[in-house]
Design a binder for these strands. Structure first.
Lengths: 170, 170
DNA sequence: AGCCTTATTATGATTTATTCAAAATAAGTG
DNA sequence: CACTTATTTTGAATAAATCATAATAAGGCT
């Protein structure tokens, strides 16, 4: 085990090169965090920390926060803010894709840009609004996934509640 | 001052009716919160609490949280989650409009739906994703407003920082 | 008008998500 | 191998939001 290579070695090399060319140091924790997020996209900081601990048992959530923020800043990760949930991260950067979250179970799916590519960067402004130079457009779809539609009301207890109210998960 | 009416009385009556028909009680704090959010849209819970205190000096943020959550649940308010900022609320519900936030100053503008109306509810799915029944599509644009483009770097202090990094406001 | 039921609000504490400052560590350079 | 400095660790602090319980008041009823 001198070389200590498991996991996708190709990706690791790729990330190392990327970090290097960005003038950033290549560290175990950065590679581990990248691998964790690559392996399970849309991870929260906690998720990532748990995954990383398999390799670096002593890492703390705070360190993971620092690494995540830095990698996001460097452009190697993308941060997603889903409603009623901590921030999530993914390695798929650069392409203009969006997300759909199921209001039933909270699962998140990737969605290709609805309009094509650039068009969603040219919004039609509401009357009276000042114009902006749009740089990114994040679309967040919300709905019910097929699985959750099969189980109409597996809820715990709402007596007179209408079936289609708020769902919090997690 | 027996009638105690100031502020937009018409709106207040409208909200009262809405609450009533939803089987919910009409309370001072609900009306005050609605008025506060109506007056300055995209308010945070803190903003709303501050505004409401002009009328109900003893109200606490926690109560405002409860009221906001309940009104959102009732469909009288809409909750917006902007990146790097607490949740915000607005009274404009029902229409399918989106938001643009300036990465410079954090100001938020309303944006009419880019695609028209319904189309943004029919996303093109990424390969391998399970389908979902989309209910709402929130689009979050990010960019620089004209004001912030005029002042390229009025920042406090970033020495070697590139001008286009993270901005936190509030 | 006044009482009563129950939704709503207040209170105080608690949890969760995230950030910060300072000390310890380790990448990469010469 | 030594040295500089980015990065990580550590421990504490803050911000945002939620929860359980007690107090209050809305609106139906008589």
């Amino acid at each position: 085990m001198t070389t200590g290579t498991h996991r996708s070695d190709a990706l690791e090399a790729q990330w190392s090169r990327a970090l290097h060319s960005l003038g950033r140091r290549v560290t175990r924790q950065r590679l581990a965090v990248l691998a964790a997020v690559e392996h399970s996209p849309h991870s929260t900081a906690d998720d990532a920390a748990a995954a990383v601990r398999a390799e670096l048992p002593h890492i703390t959530v705070q360190s993971v926060y620092v690494v995540l923020a830095d990698l996001t800043d460097a452009g190697l990760l993308r941060r997603i803010e889903t409603p009623h949930s901590p921030a999530r991260y993914e390695t798929r950067v650069g392409d203009n894709h969006h997300h759909a979250v199921c209001t039933g179970c909270g699962r998140i799916e990737d969605v290709d840009c609805a309009v094509g590519h650039a068009p969603c960067l040219t919004p039609s402004w509401a009357p009276g609004s000042g114009r902006m130079t749009i740089q990114i457009a994040e679309v967040m779809y919300q709905g019910l996934c097929d699985d959750c539609r099969d189980i109409p009301a597996q809820s715990t207890d709402h007596s007179t509640d209408s079936p289609q109210k708020e769902h919090h998960e997690r």
